[in-house]
Design a protein around this nucleic acid. Structure first.
Length: 230
DNA sequence: GGATGATCATAT
DNA sequence: ATATGATCATCC
């Protein structure tokens, strides 16, 4: 708790101000950052799974909305928190966007959601080992990333293979085992949620909504390329 | 221990 | 239902 009023963060004016704020929260605990905003730190994330992401959004001045736009639209930058272990290794895959299951004829990589979402990402690593109490977990050093040509090639290859299956009415044959760096997994409230998809005969049927996710190996490669190689 | 499939909160 | 934010729970 604090005797001070909650911190207020307007949107960062430019990329430098955004990075400045990101560096300013690096090394600090979730408890400290929550206190500044007068937020309660949950004991765990059984229910509030997106809590850390929303905390960081507010700290950096991102728009807290459900709009299908980048977190920092005026900068064209997407914000992603990344749960990491004590060694800085990603512990979870990263959700990118919902996978389109219908109306995808003629959809090209250059215009797809994955390409758009990942054009520029501000990664914020956050400690997430189960043994560390949530309130004590710390924010790591920020990383502003754009896919390298080889990284984009991998993403594009996986995306095209997934989209082809979906277009051919084979969405239910897709499993998370497929894709080198980009996989497709359920993305829904529960297994009973339904959305339209292309069926085997080109018809439309109801199926579980899916999302694109980055494998941990890929995000680890991103972190390594910045923190280790340089 | 790590990855896959399932799930939770909130706003629109 | 779809969009935002992800982590949980279970299986191998």
């Amino acid at each position: 708790m604090s005797i001070f009023p909650p911190k207020y963060s307007a949107q960062p004016r430019d990329k430098d101000e955004l990075l400045e704020r990101a560096y300013a929260i690096a090394g600090r605990s979730l408890q400290e950052l929550a206190d500044e905003l007068a937020l309660e730190v949950p004991e765990n994330f059984l229910r509030e799974k997106g809590w850390v992401g929303q905390l960081i959004e507010k700290q950096l001045g991102a728009e807290a909305g459900s709009k299908p736009e980048p977190d920092f639209q005026h900068l064209g930058i997407e914000l992603k928190t990344l749960p990491v272990d004590i060694e800085g290794k990603p512990k979870e895959s990263t959700f990118v966007c919902v996978a389109p299951l219908i109306g995808i004829q003629g959809l090209e990589w250059q215009l797809c959601g994955v390409k758009k979402k990942l054009s520029e990402v501000l990664w914020i690593p956050v400690e997430s080992d189960k043994q560390i109490p949530v309130h004590h977990r710390r924010v790591g050093m920020p990383l502003l990333w754009q896919p390298s040509p080889s990284q984009e090639a991998l993403l594009r290859q996986d995306w095209e293979e997934h989209i082809e299956k979906i277009a051919l009415g084979q969405v239910e044959q897709i499993t998370a085992h497929q894709g080198q760096v980009l996989q497709i997994r359920p993305k829904a409230a529960n297994s009973k949620a339904l959305t339209e998809a292309i069926g085997p005969d080109g018809n439309v049927f109801q199926t579980l909504p899916r999302g694109f996710y980055l494998r941990t190996g890929f995000t680890q490669q991103i972190l390594n390329s910045y923190y280790v190689t340089q």
